[in-house]
Simulated scan of single mutants.
Amino acid sequence: MVTGSVAEGLCDEYSDCDVMFYYDELPTEAELARSRQQNPGAELVDILGNPTEGAVGETLCIDGVECQFAHATIAQWEREIASILEAFDITSPIMKGMSGTLNGIPLYGELLIQQWKARITDYPDGLAQKMVEHYLTFVPVWGMQEKLARRDTTLWYHQILVESAQNILGVLSGLNRLYFSAFQFKRMGRFVEQMAIAPADLSARLEGLFLQEPPVAARELEGLVRETTELVNIHMPQVDTALAKRKLGWRQQPWIPAPH
């Protein structure tokens, strides 16, 4: 199965080629080595994973194109699907693989891959709620602007912005039944376009957080958090948003030394 930007028709001259191979039993290292020899000039860049765990990945450079080949047993991949759809392991990078499978193009074994696609398309309600509850947490940077201005907090401030933007996307992914992982997250605009439930102009506003002066960006972030929690109240009222909303409108006040 071809996945990634090639399968989605989004590849360019910097793209790699992602291909997934599934087996009843993984090939041996000798068998993989023989397959590489069928690509004259292919350069082995890296090998990842442990075959004893049911999966291994290799990166080859073929005619200047980086090709990432993932080899997994059918049993291992089905266990990983279950880890998301049944165990709700939303922090796993396999979340990214779920979207890859949905968008993938089968080259062989189409019947089996279509069965996986059908299963992944059926996004469980429990997974959606787990996504919302997990990501519904925000550092109220909008209320700490005067304090941060007095401290050397550039890295921490931008870390808060990144994590906050990712958490907003995570919450909205749950509301929209989308598979989301912060791992190597790319093409945000295209991802946001899939959301029927989202604050207006979400993509542009998230991008703007990193282009505006801190006081302006902090207020915009506060507004996005407010709108996102309101959407949770409307579309998933069983989730408690009190903690996320508690600091909206809050501004930290300096303490005053007590007189002697």
Rank of each mutant, 00 (worst) to 15 (best):
I81A: 14
A118S: 08
I90N: 01
L112P: 10
E78W: 15
H158T: 04
G104N: 06
L148D: 07
T137L: 08
G143P: 05
P106I: 07
E78H: 14
M131A: 05
N103I: 09
K147S: 10
L148S: 04
W77C: 15
A82F: 11
S83W: 00
T153P: 04
L155S: 11
S92P: 05
Y108Q: 13
N103V: 10
R119L: 02
W142A: 01
G100M: 12
Q145C: 05
M131S: 04
L169R: 06
I84D: 02
E80Q: 15
Y123F: 02
R119F: 00
G104W: 10
A128P: 04
L102T: 03
L155G: 11
A87H: 13
P140C: 01
L172S: 07
L136P: 06
P124E: 03
K117Y: 11
I113T: 09
E163Q: 12
D122L: 00
W116G: 08
H134Y: 13
E80S: 14
I105N: 04
W116I: 11
A72P: 07
Q129L: 12
S164V: 10
D122K: 01
L136W: 10
L169E: 02
Q114K: 14
L85D: 05
L127R: 02
G143R: 09
T154Q: 10
L102A: 04
L155P: 07
G143Q: 05
F88H: 15
K147A: 09
D122P: 00
W116Q: 15
M95D: 00
A70D: 01
S99C: 07
P124H: 02
V132K: 04
K130I: 11
A75Y: 07
G143H: 08
E110D: 07
P140I: 04
Y157L: 08
H158E: 10
T153Y: 09
Q166E: 07
G170E: 02
I105G: 02
D152R: 02
P140L: 03
G109N: 04
E110C: 01
Y123T: 00
Y108F: 15
T154N: 07
P140A: 03
I84A: 03
Q114Y: 08
L155F: 10
M98V: 08
Q76P: 01
E146W: 07
R119I: 01
Y123R: 00
A149Y: 06
V139M: 12
T137Y: 06
